[in-house]
Amino acid sequence: MHWIDRVKNVDRRVIYLLILFAVAIPLLRPIGLPVDISPKAQSIYDLVEALPNGATVMISFDYDPASRAEVHPMAEAIVEHCIRRKLKILAPALWPQGPSMASEVFGKMEKRHAGLSYGSDYAILGYFHGPTEGDPQVKALMGNLTEAYPQDTRGNQVRDLPIIKSYRGPEDLGIVISLSAGDPGVLAWVRQGVSNYQIKLAAGSTAVQTPQFTPYINAGQMVGLLGGLKGAAEYEKLVGVKGLGTSGMDAQSIAHLVIMLFILLANFVYVYENFVLKRKV
């Protein structure tokens, strides 16, 4: 068998194994490759930094455990930043699994920040189904929050929570951050929240969705965007925490390198076979 045929017919499991090593080894033995901060991440950080103490922000948990690897690290970094800045956090969810993701993040924060108080500093409002999923969810949420949420995830009457007493409407929100893994998510927030209520919107999304949202940044409809694990690592660096985003970046880079090498190899084989071998024949 010619070596070209051997390369062409390489068992796919060999590739899987190489990718596994490319991810596992840097996770266990980090190289410390640098993470640069993109303007899209910096602008979210700057806006949160510029908010006055005690301002209210909304972080919408629009993802589920399937996207946990990408979105959860950025959720932790953003919530950490907001708590350090002493902002009040309202946490609704457009996905049914969102509240459990929020509970996990805030549970960790309660252990890290003594004195963080539920109801005064943050409230996990829970899943809001709305008239139908998508735009109507956001419209109803923005229109009347306490009507959308009679109770929070802990069974409290939302209108009785101290954090709600100072909240009059979307105009009081310093920033809305949608942590999104699909639909309903960022698009519904852009179409309803930004277009109808002029909220300042930022997003943390899975990498797959990132190119879809970029035009909204260019048009000024969104303040910033964190894309995938890289976005999480950028925000962790800005906040100064070493989370799962940072620990995964070496593995991400090496795995991409392996994939690029395979793409180059495949192209080399194609060129060699079609231009060199055929000429010889």
Partner: peptide
Amino acid sequence: YTVMARISLLIGRLQFLFGDWLHLKSG
């Protein structure tokens, strides 16, 4: 970006296996 997302999912699972399950690395 899709490739990046898929690799991130693998990273997430290996972080869980090495960190939460096998306790190989606290980070």
